[in-house]
Write a protein that binds this DNA or RNA. Structure first.
Ligand SMILES: [Zn+2]
Ligand SMILES: [Zn+2]
Ligand SMILES: [Zn+2]
Ligand SMILES: [Zn+2]
Lengths: 139, 139
DNA sequence: TATGCAACTGCAATCCCTTGCATCTATGAT
DNA sequence: ATCATAGATGCAAGGGATTGCAGTTGCATA
C-alpha cells in the first residue's frame, strides 16, 4: 500500500516536479472506485481547477505509467482506462457477446511469463490486461 | 490455405455483398508480405481506384475481422496492423527498449487458454497478440 | 432484362489521443 | 529572498479511427 505522499516524493527523487495539476490528477486516480478514463479524470480535476488541459491529464498518466504507479487497460470500448497500482495487479476477461467483465488474479499469467522467459529470454510486462472472448453463459 | 475466391463466396453466403472496393481491399491484405496498416491498404487501393474512401477500408477490415479472415494487432506504434489468416496464427513479443519484434508460435498460449477455460469457463479469442516487455539482449 | 430494396459507399463531422511550441513555474543555487 | 533554468503547462493543430447520413449499387426476384 503506497501512500500518495510517497508517490509524490518518488516523483521528486527522479527529477520530476510536483505541480498542482499532478497532485489533482493523481488524487483522482487514487480515489477512483473503479477503472477511470482520462476524460473522467479531466472532468473531476476541472471541478477544482477549470484551467487544466486534457493534454496535461494524458501526459501525467503517461508519466505515472512509466513510473509504474498506474496501469492502463483497453477494454475495447474505444477509450483506455487507468487504475492505481495501490489496488493491486490483476487482469480481466471481456465477453464480446454480453459485454460482461470477469476479474482475474495476476497469477493466471505466471506460467506464460515463465515460458516466455525460458523460451525467448523475454521479460514480459503484463501488468493489467484485458483478454477478449466468450464467457461461460454465452457459449 | 483459403483462396480469395472462397473468401468472396463466404461473404455472399452470409448476406454480405461483393463490391469492387472489398475485392481490392481483400487483395491488398492477402498479397501483403508483412503486417499492413489501413493507411497502406488505402494507398494501394487508391492506385487502382482513387475514389475509394479510408472509412470504407476501415469498415471492410472490421468485417473481415468479424468473419475471422483477417487478424488485427497493435504493435504499440500508434497504428493497428492487419494480417491475412491465410498466413497462419501467431503472436509477437515487442521489446520496449530496442523496438525489436520476435515472432511466436500460436501454441505458446495454449496452456493459458486451457486454464481460462477450466477456471472461468471462458473461451479466449487470442488470435494475434503483441506482448510488450524487454528482450534478452536488453535486459 | 427491368425492378426494388437492403447493403454499401463517400463525405464530413466527430472522437480519442498526441505533439510542437511558446509561455510559465517549481525547485535548487546563490 | 531572488535568480536561473530545466521541466511542465496550455493551446492549437494534427493523426488514426469511427459514425451519421444521404445517395449509390449489388443482387434477388419476377
Ligand atoms: Zn483492472
Ligand atoms: Zn458473455
Ligand atoms: Zn503477426
Ligand atoms: Zn530489446
Amino acid at each position: 500500500m503506497v501512500k500518495t505522499g510517497e508517490i509524490l516524493s518518488k516523483l521528486t527523487a527522479q527529477g520530476y516536479r510536483i505541480t498542482p495539476q499532478r497532485i489533482m490528477i493523481l488524487d483522482a486516480v487514487e480515489n477512483a472506485d473503479d477503472h477511470i478514463s482520462a476524460e473522467e479524470i479531466f472532468t473531476l480535476v476541472c471541478l477544482q481547477y477549470p484551467n487544466v488541459n486534457i493534454s496535461t491529464v494524458y501526459r501525467t498518466l503517461e508519466l505515472l505509467k512509466q513510473l509504474e504507479l498506474v496501469t492502463e487497460t483497453d477494454f475495447g470500448d474505444g477509450r483506455v482506462r487507468y487504475h492505481s497500482i495501490k489496488k493491486g495487479h490483476h487482469h480481466h476477461l471481456v465477453c464480446q457477446k454480453c459485454g460482461g467483465i470477469i476479474d482475474m488474479e495476476e497469477s493466471i499469467f505466471t506460467p506464460l511469463r515463465e515460458s516466455l522467459l525460458k523460451q525467448y529470454g523475454f521479460d514480459a510486462d503484463i501488468h493489467h490486461l484485458a483478454i477478449f472472448g466468450t464467457c461461460k453463459k454465452c457459449r
